[in-house]
Design a binder for these strands. Structure first.
Length: 726
DNA sequence: TGGGAGTGCTTTTTT
DNA sequence: AGCACTCCCA
């Protein structure tokens, strides 16, 4: 018997994973080990060997991009129609489930989805109407609280009230639930929780889906939160096989509720017979992998895994110590220029940093050098102001009781409806238990007139678009609402007008795509699915000016990507690892995983850099090199600057070779009469080598703040502490 | 109603 | 420093 062509070229572990008999499986897939390939080949194999039909497969990812990628690869592997297959994000699939069973889920057919920003404004509105003290209960904090509860699977009634403060927050959570229900809107976490509850409560539906999906495949399993895991357990509870792929070493979203522990729990609770490890890396050269392995080895909480490659060790890792953030940026630009001269494509060069604030200096330097670049992580299409305005009008057509949408555009473009009128309206709505829109009819006087005119506008939009194809609906709404002319008259409005036009195009291509793919949603208003699409998929990040551009992004957004050349900048204690994370063990381990992710993005060449001083939040900070630099074996590193100032290495006496000494701003401060100055390296008997970052007081009262790296930031009295210049 | 001044925040981010 | 947000005045 011959092997299916689809299995050709898989290594033994990949093959074992792909062809596993129907049983629960945990695949530990290291960076660059062919994870997506295994996942898609597994699906193709199940179908080709008739173990499952497309109908019986559920595949879950975290991002729309990953879902799309999977679908694309699958359709090139299988010459069949994949329509019946459920591939998508957790949220997308839950949306699909809730749309199909909206009645059972107690939702209006055209329920709207609140994105993060919508949710926040809904909470702000609620806080105002409940007369909550927003100093004590900041809306942002409430939003976080509510989402955290939902992600634990907890309704307001189930949250434990341990103190008065929490009790009040629970009341607000409860009021928020009522408000959402009244308005017919759901937030992201609600999509998950609501569909989980639907399946819990409704045995018939539960069994239907449990019996339908015999194979459940999960991508990036290390990123699942508590609720997502329970959701999977429930769907798989009818004897399905769950095939979970993940990498605990790449879990970098703990800060927003991702639970790496789910991997261990899964292994235990589902009695996974043996975990398959994909450790052969097809991406990076040996030195890069060795560095990554050496770094991650310092983490305690690991399932354990060691990447290897047969690609040869390749080049050493280049490391540069800059005197300042500006100096660092300048050096990076010079290096990139040289790389481009050597024939490297700009798009194959990535510039990574820990936090977005770092991009400014880099962008400036790239811009000055006329190097095309593209920054990821900006405002996305569906998040733009003008787009959200247009969508709000569309939402009001679908559901005039959507108070969030109502509030957004009731006076935009301005039509003389001021804060006073809206307060009046909100009062009426509250006392009578009506939506803002419904409350208009109860209002008289001047406020009543202008608001009635707005209600009439919404009604005319609804009537004027009835039966029209979606793109024409969108176009009509943009024109008649006054948005279009408003932005045309605005000085800087040209881009916004263009974006509104683009929205019409987006709706047209949505219809074109959707019509060919979603037979199950027939009969449902195209408008509603378009609105859901807009919420669930915020759209491409801001397009770059040029296709062949240097790629700038945070380490987080680099996950899943790879480049021939990678720069990791700002490798400084306090920045990377971030100071907020250093204190707790878990935080530091997550930072280290982040570093691991960063390093493993590189195929052939990796640059590391750090700066002695950096401007942050309007203040100059004095830094020492990141501990992660020291976790890389010295033999793998090629220093482009003499190795000094590296507090973790025991060579404090190395001198700065050649050139002028680093241009540290040495202000004559209180510290100077002791022979010490800011920016100076010092030795301390207990804490070791550090750098002075701040000083206060004078004479015998002088205290200095010293960054000791490992030992942290300390304030020391000069009279007491024995500090010697290093 | 809109803009100017004052205030406060600032890790990472997808859905 | 830079940005978002609020508040107050013309």
């Amino acid at each position: 018997m011959e092997m299916l062509p689809l299995l050709h070229g898989l290594n033994p572990e990949q093959l074992a994973a792909v062809t596993l008999p129907p049983q629960h499986a945990l695949i530990l897939a290291g960076a660059g080990s062919g994870k997506t390939r295994v996942l898609t080949t597994r699906i193709a194999w199940l179908i080709q060997t008739n173990q499952a039909g497309p109908h019986g497969i559920l595949a879950v990812t975290f991002t729309n991009k990953a879902a799309k990628e999977m679908l694309t690869r699958l359709s090139s592997m299988l010459p069949i129609n994949l329509r019946g297959m459920w591939i998508g994000t957790f949220h997308g699939l839950c949306n699909r489930l809730l749309r199909a069973h909206h009645r059972e889920a107690a939702l209006p057919q055209l329920f709207q989805i609140l994105d993060q920003a919508d949710q926040l404004s809904a909470i702000k509105r609620l806080v105002k109407s409940l007369d909550v003290d927003d100093e004590k209960y900041p809306p942002r904090e409430l939003q976080h609280f509510i989402n955290a509860q939902k992600e634990q699977g907890l309704r307001a009634s189930a949250v434990e009230a341990w103190d008065d403060f929490t009790r009040r927050r629970i009341e607000i959570y409860e009021a928020y639930e009522r408000q959402c229900q009244r308005e017919g809107v759901v937030d992201f976490a609600e999509l998950l929780l609501r569909s989980f509850e639907l399946l819990t409560r409704n045995e018939i539906l539960r069994r239907h889906y449990q019996e339908r999906f015999r194979h459940i495949l999960v991508d990036e399993f290390q990123d699942t939160n508590v609720l997502q895991y329970r959701w999977l357990k429930q769907l798989g509870g009818g004897g399905a096989s769950i095939f979970a792929v993940g990498d605990d070493d790449q879990s970098i979203y703990g800060f927003r509720g991702a639970e790496v522990g789910n991997m261990r729990d899964f292994e235990r609770e589902f009695k996974v017979a043996h975990v398959i490890r994909l450790e052969q890396n097809y991406r990076s050269h040996g030195n890069i992998l060795d560095a990554a392995n050496a770094i991650i080895k310092n983490n305690e909480a690991r399932l354990g895994k060691n990447l290897w490659t047969d690609a040869g060790s390749g080049e050493p890792i280049r490391i540069f110590e800059a005197t300042s953030d500006l100096d660092e940026a300048r050096w990076i630009v010079e290096e990139i220029k040289a790389l481009c001269r050597d024939g490297h494509a700009r798009a194959e060069i990535a510039l990574l940093y820990r936090s977005n604030a770092q991009s400014r200096v880099l962008e400036h330097a790239l811009f000055s050098a006329a190097l095309p670049y593209r920054v990821y992580g900006g405002l996305r299409f569906f998040e733009r102001q003008e787009i959200k305005h247009a969508l709000a009008y569309l939402r009001l057509i679908a559901n005039p009781d959507d108070d969030t949408a109502f509030s957004r555009v009731v006076n935009f473009p301005t039509r003389g409806i001021g804060a006073r009128s809206l307060e009046q309206l909100a009062d009426v709505a509250r006392t009578r238990g009506l939506s803002l829109h419904a409350a208009i009819a109860q209002l008289s006087g001047k406020a009543g007139t202008s608001l009635a005119a707005f209600a009439a506008l919404i009604e005319s939009l609804r009537q004027g678009t009835e039966g029209l194809p979606l793109p024409e609906v969108v176009d009509h709404v943009i024109e008649i609402s006054g948005l279009s002319s408003h932005y045309r008259n605005e000085r800087e409005g040209a881009d916004r007008v263009a974006n509104l036009d683009e929205l019409v195009n987006a709706s047209a291509s949505f219809v074109a795509e959707e019509g060919s793919r979603e037979p199950e949603e027939e009969g449902q208003s195209a408008l509603a699915s378009f609105l859901a699409h807009a919420s669930l998929e915020a759209g491409e990040h801001q397009a770059g000016d040029s296709d062949d551009a240097v790629q700038l992004m945070t380490v987080h957004s680099a996950k899943g990507l790879e480049f021939n050349v990678v720069f990791i900048s700002g490798l400084e204690e306090g920045l990377f690892p971030h100071e907020n994370a250093i204190l707790e063990e878990k935080g530091l381990e997550e930072e280290r995983r982040l570093m691991y992710v960063a390093v493993t993005r590189a195929r052939a060449r990796l640059y590391l850099s750090f700066a002695q001083t950096r401007m942050l939040h309007g203040q100059t900070r004095y830094n020492v090199a990141s501990r992660f630099v020291d976790e890389i074996p010295a033999a793998l590193l090629k220093w482009l600057t003499p190795k000094i100032r590296n507090v973790f290495a025991a060579s404090p006496n190395a001198s700065y070779g050649g050139g002028p000494s680093p241009a540290l701003p040495r202000k004559a401060g209180p510290a100077s009469d002791s022979g010490l100055s800011i920016g100076q390296n010092v030795n301390h008997a207990k804490f070791g080598l550090g750098v002075i970052v701040n000083a206060e007081g004078s004479g015998s009262d002088t205290r200095v703040q010293v960054n000791f790296g490992h030992a942290g930031m300390k304030w020391l009295a000069l009279a007491v502490a024995k500090l010697t210049p290093a």
